[in-house]
Design a protein around this nucleic acid. Structure first.
Lengths: 349, 349
DNA sequence: ATGAAAGCGCTAACAG
DNA sequence: CTGTTAGCGCTTTCAT
């Protein structure tokens, strides 16, 4: 075997045995010397010998062997509906950045809203012995999530949560967010406000709808049932379809709060297709403040949720859960912020 | 140990030994029975016994043990600059979808354009014994990529490639793409066409710039040096800055081709800030056709690159490279498509 | 067709 | 402080 003194990435990995041999010590001593936490156990001189040998040989510890031995892989999984949905990349980045410090790798997988696929993915992740799991795909009733919760694997929900189950979760404060939207519209003089609600089997969809109702009551506006339509997905096309339904009802309204930004975009499409103008004919408010909301035509007034922060916080909670598996679940509700742009304006007279 | 007959995800993993025991066979027989490829070696009746035992115990093969033994992990890595850059999610999805069939997991990592970080990530991936690597962060000169190429690890570049190095790569046909853009503008009557070029140390930046020059010559238009500005990143802010420089030169032009869509967005910002209109004052063409290009104000005429397809193709090439490590590198150049929208119009008179 | 034995590379008691 | 021993869970010769 030719061992180059090349410390680059191309060297073919020496094993711990090789290092030990080269340093003239036993493999376990080499292991102790190499390992931050056990290093104090070994004489400084020996440590130096081992470290230099490792360096010389370009030793690269085999994470599989280590993981097999320790049953810890320093890998966590994250389940998202779809990476190309602009809501999720910032969440994933936050998570990655939060896990990177302590040395964790995160593996993201797309479920595409398919329960079987999701199960298969979780199965594969568990086979790989991930140390924890973050789930951004939760529906309010979610058998798999409930199983996972019961199984005791460190688990944190983000963005979406399940109905009353003892699981850690990081979500936005949607009640507060919808309040921001409603009060903003009321301040502009709107009294006939519609809601293009998201799917009600997802926590965000339900909470935003309920909050809409509650805030309308709170500001003393009548809640007309005809002013609410529902979509079956947080997407543009379903949003458009629902908004068409709303328009076709011929009920009077001057503003609409969409379940999220994509649904708002669906409303944009329908407004254009009917020759109506935003905000002159109808003011539109979105939710989430995804990338490019400020570039739309018109720039979309929306409620920003701190998506990157949510990922970061999820990382914190997951790290805690890994460290102390027994601890009680924690729920975090992060504050939203109104991003006032040009899709909302004074009520038309 | 209580073993439930629950086949869900919450069972605590039985080992191969447990399965063998329950089936009344030797672990190696169980292994053969469980493994698709070795199954023919074992009697059908035995296979049935083992399978049923495995099912009953909720056996979940330990991928680490298997990976350690076989030195194949069925995991590949992918290096991207930043997941929140909308160009990359489709590429990653394509890659994932292409690798999923054969049973591979892909681990994505963000380098943020930081060479040290990139090296650390690759190091960690190699420690995890990934079977191959896809790189979307290549600069034209890229020491790490070159090392990786020489190291013999299955490697495929996407989106960006290195200068003359024998590495497999899947890129867009940017010469063709810029041709589409130039000819489109020429057809609209433009003769004074500017180029807000991307960074020249990245293949896409260089090729698009050179292609711009070459196509301008080809259509018989003078190539005025003053009509080209360079950015140091494929981002909105650098794009804006470069476009300001261009405007400040007070050279006459009626159209601009941006190095990518983000740079085009930078041009949008500056146009607004100077009270100019797109396309009345200047037509703008982007590149890539990222998400929401059709929602911008005005909708951006751009050259679409098949990003999802690029990921898919990269998966194919990587799978090939894993299967036949000796094979010569392959370069694919996928065809672009002009997406004509409202940021381009007839030359003003 | 199956069992026995060995070992992938590592860490962790347990001695000394 | 260091060496010895054992074993994580799996696949794979080699026998039989």
């Amino acid at each position: 075997v030719t061992v180059s003194d090349d410390n680059s990435v191309l060297r073919k990995s020496a094993t711990l045995r090789d290092v030990a041999l080269a340093a003239g010590v036993h493999p376990s001593t080499a292991s102790r010397a190499l390992n931050e936490s056990t290093r104090p156990m070994v004489k400084v001189a020996t440590v130096r010998k081992v470290l230099s040998a490792a360096d010389r040989l370009g030793y690269r510890p085999n994470s599989l062997a280590r993981g097999l031995k320790m049953s810890r892989t320093f890998t966590v999984g994250v389940l998202i509906p779809d990476l190309t949905n602009p809501l999720f990349p910032p969440v994933v980045r936050g998570l990655e950045d939060g896990m990177a410090g302590p040395g964790y790798t995160v593996v993201a997988a797309n479920t595409d809203g398919d329960d079987d696929k999701e199960r298969a993915i979780v199965e594969a992740m568990l086979n790989r012995r991930i140390d924890g799991l973050v789930v951004a795909t939760a529906r309010r009733e979610h058998p798999l999530v409930q199983e996972l919760a019961r199984s005791g694997i460190p688990l944190v929900l983000v963005v979406r949560t399940v109905d009353d189950s003892p699981v850690s979760a990081v979500v936005g404060d949607d009640h507060e967010g919808i309040g921001l939207a409603v009060r903003h519209l009321v301040a502009l003089g709107h009294t006939r406000i519609a809601h293009v609600a998201g799917p009600q089997d997802v926590s965000a969809g339900l909470v935003r709808y309920h909050s809409f109702l509650s805030w309308m009551g709170h500001v003393g506006l009548p809640v007309d049932e005809d002013l609410v339509v529902f979509t079956d997905a947080f997407q543009e096309a379903p949003g458009a379809e629902a908004f068409r339904t709303l328009l076709d009802r011929r009920v009077e309204f001057t503003a609409a709060i969409a379940g999220n930004d994509l649904i708002a975009l669906g409303c944009y499409d329908v407004m254009a297709e009917r020759g109506l103008h935003i905000p002159q004919d109808v003011s539109v408010v979105g939710y989430n403040d995804i990338l490019f909301c400020d570039k739309f035509n018109p720039p979309l007034t929306t409620v920003r949720i701190p998506s990157y922060q949510m990922g970061l916080k999820a990382a914190e909670l997951l790290l805690d859960a890994i460290k102390s598996p027994g601890d009680a679940p924690i729920s975090l509700r992060l504050k939203p912020q109104l991003m006032q742009r040009r899709s909302t304006g004074p009520v038309r007279s």
